[in-house]
Amino acid sequence: MCRPVGRSGLLGSIHAEPRALPVISAVGLSKSYGSTRAVDELSFEVRSGVVTGFLGPNGSGKSTTMRMVMGLDRPTAGSVTINGVGYHDLRWPLREVGALLEAKAVHPGRSAYAHLLSLAQTNAIPRSRVDDVLAMVGLEGVSRRKAGKFSLGMSQRLGIASALLGDPGVLLFDEPINGLDPEGILWVRNLLKSLAAEGRTVFVSSHLMSEMAQTATDLVVIGRGRLISDTSVENFIASNTESTVLVRTPETERLQGVLAAAGLRVAPGADGGLVVTGATAVQVGEAAHAASVMLHELSPQQASLEEVFMDMTSDMVDYHGLTPDAPVDGAPAGAPSGAGAEVGR
């Protein structure tokens, strides 16, 4: 193979503006715990300047991947680098990489201030910075209180403060919005975006596609430890949803025949409408006009990200809830399940 630059590299870029070289780069990253293959030959790249969402259902290997990036878990195979070096070779790791891995990873009897101070001391970060980050996350009023008494939201904020402590260029957040109220979610969303806008690399995991749709520019999607997609949010939607068109007419049966004759895939939709798959509104409108069928509604439908995500990972989810009508096992990848069938409703 003579193309050293990958899909999202400088060559063959699908974006108008040239993309920066990847900051985090995983190659063939794998991790097994006994017989559990938590991460399986995962290769992806994360660039600076944008928020990159890391998506996957529960147990798909997001946290494991992040621990390997942080040099905490040793990969069974493959490697991951930050700005070209392994985590263990970073000279002042907190000044280069900040991470929120677990919200409650603080001694319950220690104050937020003391916790952050102890971290600052490891990387020669001045004491004044502790007060700065406490103010940034809005914990300055409770900084001397025991962290064990913090709510989950406050703990998340403390975790974010510790990630920001070294003013690092690379930030990793593992499910940072867990336990936050709407105001907190909005705060994190804006924080992530502004960190990225400052030129930082922001890699944030979530199992909520809808959340990532509002925050991320790039997406790394995994299922059962394997890469499903490494692209931009825009591309992800475009290449994974077939556009559908909802059309309503008083002459439903006639239109169905007309559209089918025109080679379009058409199926009855909700409330007596018709759903046309793989066609644009223009095609449907022209076909109807040619046959002189009157239309009451003609609207293109866009699948929400959540639906796309559920569709893609429906056969990749390890832990299905016990819903009576859940597919028994291994629904074929292409077949839309419950949520997928209702695309664009």
Binding site: L72, L101, A105, V106
Partner: peptide, 17 residues
């Protein structure tokens, strides 16, 4: 106490040696 809370990960990430 650090292993119990997960703080050991933060410690080892701060000082990779």
């Amino acid at each position: 106490s650090e292993y119990g809370t997960g703080a050991m990960r933060t410690t080892l990430a701060s000082v990779p040696r």
